[in-house]
């Protein structure tokens, strides 16, 4: 399967990945028009930073053994047997947030506006040329690679 491989050392916290992610999930939006101040603008990837650890990219791993899928009581989270990616079906989701609790890496979060859905990486599956965050990273700190599973 394809996974976004992270090189933490290369990340300098520019947050272009965040902007690209928000823009990719906002209809008709692009780098120039994206409204970062909107409550609807939610990034699916995160860069944590503090003085000690520096910049740490937190991106959904689409885990081989996804805890979010195992904790999902509605069937909204599912690992695609073909792509290996963990897909999220908003229409099935009951917003119980067991997946938020069970993701050991703290990747998942409720949506800010309504708390009725989960904000989750979809690997930009509708885009022909792969995840928008990867394309936007000026440092190649994140790259799509084929990994075995």
């Amino acid at each position: 399967m394809k996974r976004i491989i992270i090189d933490r050392e290369k990340c300098d916290g520019c947050l272009n990945c965040n902007v690209a992610c928000i823009s990719a999930h906002e209809e008709g939006s692009n780098f120039y028009t994206v409204n970062l101040g909107s409550v609807d603008s939610e990034t699916r990837n995160f860069i944590k930073f503090d003085a000690k650890t520096g910049y740490t990219p937190i991106f959904c791993r689409h885990c081989d053994e996804p805890e979010c899928v195992l904790s999902c009581m509605s069937g909204a989270m599912e690992k695609d047997p073909v792509t290996g990616h963990v897909k999220y079906d908003e229409s099935k989701c009951a917003a119980c947030y067991m997946c938020v609790m069970n993701c050991p890496f703290g990747v998942l979060k409720p949506d800010n506006k309504t708390r009725t859905k989960v904000i989750k990486c979809d690997f930009c599956e509708e885009k022909q040329d792969g995840p928008s965050c990867v394309k936007a990273c000026p440092k190649q700190a994140i790259e799509v690679k084929e990994v075995s599973r």
Binding site: I6, R8, T53, T56, V147
Partner: peptide, 13 residues
Amino acid sequence: YADFYKVDSISGE
């Protein structure tokens, strides 16, 4: 999680 961050170099997990 950033305080405990570690990546498996082969799988990227």
